[in-house]
Computed example of a mutant assay.
Amino acid sequence: MLTTKVIIVILCCLLVSSYGQQPSTCPDQGSGNYGCFDITSQGNCTEVSNKSPTYDYRWLNSGVDSNVDWTITCGDIIAYKIQGYTGVWSGWYVPGVNDMDTKVNGGNGLRRLWSYFYDHNHSYIICKPNNINHLNGC
């Protein structure tokens, strides 16, 4: 019983000492909030607007592959729009959330709507790794 109490006291002390202390090199942002976070490894996201059809068969034949964006654009497309032949733009599609094509394709294959990048104008928001974390070949 005494051993259990001693262990609990030690754990509580360790928790307070490890959680409550900040390195002296971290700037005080006020109210005891010390900002000591390295965000240099974050990538950037940009919008690519009104892009012409790519005529790249990889979009057309990608099926439900959720990584074809990395293969073709070296980044993660997080949302996109398609311009129909009538000139009307779709709403935003998010890969894996609301972007399955309802059209039945050859061989009853399923595909994502970004397959229309092949022959439609399109816009997208893409996030790419920074120079430190770039992919080989990109």
Rank of each mutant, 00 (worst) to 15 (best):
M1S: 14
M1P: 08
T3A: 15
K5D: 00
V6H: 05
I7M: 14
V9R: 01
C13R: 09
C13P: 02
L14A: 14
L14W: 13
L15I: 15
S17Q: 04
S18W: 11
Q22C: 12
Q22M: 09
Y34P: 10
Y34R: 13
G35Q: 13
I39N: 15
Q42P: 06
C45T: 15
T46A: 15
S49R: 08
K51G: 04
P53T: 04
R58T: 14
W59K: 00
W59P: 04
N61H: 09
S62Q: 03
D65G: 10
D65M: 00
W70M: 03
W70E: 04
T71E: 08
T71N: 09
T71Q: 06
T73D: 12
I77Y: 10
I77A: 15
A79D: 14
A79F: 06
K81S: 15
I82S: 12
G84P: 05
T86I: 04
G87S: 02
V88Y: 11
W89R: 10
W89N: 13
Y93L: 10
G96T: 04
G107L: 01
R111E: 07
W114F: 11
S115N: 01
H122F: 11
I125L: 04
I125C: 08
I126L: 02
N131I: 13
N133S: 03
L135S: 13
L135E: 12
N136T: 09
